[in-house]
Amino acid sequence: MNWQAMKSIYVFEMVRTFRTLWQSVVSPVISTSLYFVVFGAAIGSRIDEVEGVTYGAFIVPGLIMLTVLVQSISNASFGIYFPKFIGTIYELLSAPVNILEIVAGYVGAAATKSFAIGLIILGTAYLFVPLDIQHPFLMLGFLMLTCLSFSLLGFIIGIWAGSFEQLQIIPLLVITPLVFLGGSFYSVSMLPPFWQTVTMFNPVLYLISGFRWAFFGTADVPVALSLLAIAAFTVICIGVIWLIFRTGWRIKN
């Protein structure tokens, strides 16, 4: 293993994060705070408890997921797309590194950044609502797995993208709607039966449900199913990345 290369990629990407600290951390915190103000305080104060949890607290896992999913994809996709865009990918392709080392460096950095943002948002949530996390370690584990798997997806998107606009397409047009419709702001049990069935086809539901279970002990789907879904998603992403490097798709001439 070329540990030195992995470390170099990881550190290089993390340094970029600190260089753009404002966009990286402050922006998601501000936007999440706004969600708390609007949904938690303004609208939430008029809503009764949902499944035994105050509405302001109920939306915390969904809000963290919303930011973490978008950030994971954005960070990882930008991390690999930018070298492609400016041409520095030549260095990566000519270095004595294998797929695992490249992915570990880029995805590791993207996941670390998203994980940190998730924790910052959690800290911000404490400023607005009282929270009593029932399974704190599982919550952290769930958050970490989510950051990792969606950073893998972001890495794939970064390789696929041919322009900066394409980088934004998946987070904006796919992930954000799926998070909103995956029970971020409501329990699936609040929907009519038909829409409950439709929602079951939304993969993000399983993430939010599992994450919410770690917070409050209640879930829309069994927690084992949530873990299985995220594990399957991670394996699929790893498989696709392996295939990309094997064929050189979109990265080699």
């Binding site: 070329n2 030195q4 290369a5 260089r19 041409g87 520095t88 030549y90 260095e91 270095a95 590194v97």
Partner: peptide, 24 residues
């Protein structure tokens, strides 16, 4: 390489050190 491909916002010493690390 033929093209001048460099990270525009990176410091000279960092980008050179990065290359060294990348090669193990």
């Amino acid at each position: 390489p033929q093209e001048v491909s460099l990270e525009p916002f990176e410091k000279v010493i960092n980008t050179v050190s990065f290359s060294r690390g990348l090669f193990g």
